[in-house]
Design a protein around this nucleic acid. Sequence first.
DNA 1: TGTTGTTTGTTGGAAAACCAACACTGACTT
DNA 2: AAGTCAGTGTTGGTTTTCCAACAAACAACA
Lengths: 219, 219
Amino acid sequence: MSDYIKTIQKSKLFRRVPEEELEDLLEHLDSQLKFYSKDQVVLTAGRRIKRVGLILEGTLNLYESDFWERTHQIDQLKHGELLMENFAVSGSVTIHSVTAATSAAVLWFNIREILTLDENHTYNTVLIQSFMREMARKNLQLYTRLSDMDRTTTKEKLLSFLSKEALHHHSNEFDIPYSRQQLADYLSVERSAMSAELSELARQGYLITRKNHFILLKK
Amino acid sequence: MSDYIKTIQKSKLFRRVPEEELEDLLEHLDSQLKFYSKDQVVLTAGRRIKRVGLILEGTLNLYESDFWERTHQIDQLKHGELLMENFAVSGSVTIHSVTAATSAAVLWFNIREILTLDENHTYNTVLIQSFMREMARKNLQLYTRLSDMDRTTTKEKLLSFLSKEALHHHSNEFDIPYSRQQLADYLSVERSAMSAELSELARQGYLITRKNHFILLKK
DNA sequence: TGTTGTTTGTTGGAAAACCAACACTGACTT
DNA sequence: AAGTCAGTGTTGGTTTTCCAACAAACAACA
């Protein structure tokens, strides 16, 4: 644990907890550090989740498997991100399976404990605040992606995505953080079809693009 | 306010707050009741959000408008649901515009206040718990929809959706809460194409369906 | 019973996306 | 300078979806 205390201290979640209270807090939260080797199963669907995970190191893959036993990756979580927070808070059963995409370290802790502490520590409100912020951030991210995907055509998906990037950068000129393939995955479309559509949009005067760089044009 | 105190008391969010503390709490949260008539604008994109809304009555529509000033509805919120909770918690600027789909009543309150109360009221932890649960619930709902939509074909979207319904009902036989049109909207596909695909799936032995009733079959 | 409106399934032509294959570009290596 | 490689754009045939129109099933109601 002590090897990772600095990583924990630097995480978005625990950053604002006073350093001298951190170890005490982690104990209160009944926290536990676990290590996973590449491809190891972290969690299987169907388990009741009681703890939240904070990924300290490595990357995890989330899967869903359907009635016909076919599995499908639905997300990838990197270090610094929370894991299972929704299931843990609502005390429900996972519908996701998790495996380690790389070797990984996860700090598991019981977020519900924080609400039942009677002592009046500083960390109390600070942690709750950070946790809620983290949830809100992730929630917004999901909303954003959902609204990009809630379109019927590739063209509309692209325009929706690019609009939001422009908004985010406060400018009609910006770089996107994705390669073409990553963008295609994000929007759930074919890379080549998307490339073609981007060319078409450029031809129609919506934008100018070169690699990651985009300039949106009012028509 | 007093007309709605019972509705507030019955809401998921405030249900567990002791009745005698409720008014006191609402005051602490700097809460305010607002009424909107049909089609009235509730919020416009670009505003910094400080309060969370709880819809007491009516239905609201969420819109997003893009760089080319085209608007697109992205969600509809009914009474009992939270509004702007993600923006309020993260203290960020809305990218959504909201209008009243019907006449509506919304209770606005400052959720961040709850974390800075020094007094030791019962409602303190109770409200936080309910609030976090509500966020988690909504988050999970988004995840669920996203994973249904994160497929390339209508067939895959349907199978993903139906699998989760089966899981949810603990049975391969269940009724879905959507009409065909609503299901098509949920999955962002064409209703008629979806109907055709459902027939095709039935022909291929994946399922039997009649109206809202479905039976999934292992092939 | 007949009328009406709503929901759902079906069909066919038009449009879009998929998919595989290949060409072009630029960065990096040797 | 030549070779390698990853990322991107292009193209054409195939599949899927869109879209509009219509038919069948069904519920509500006079």
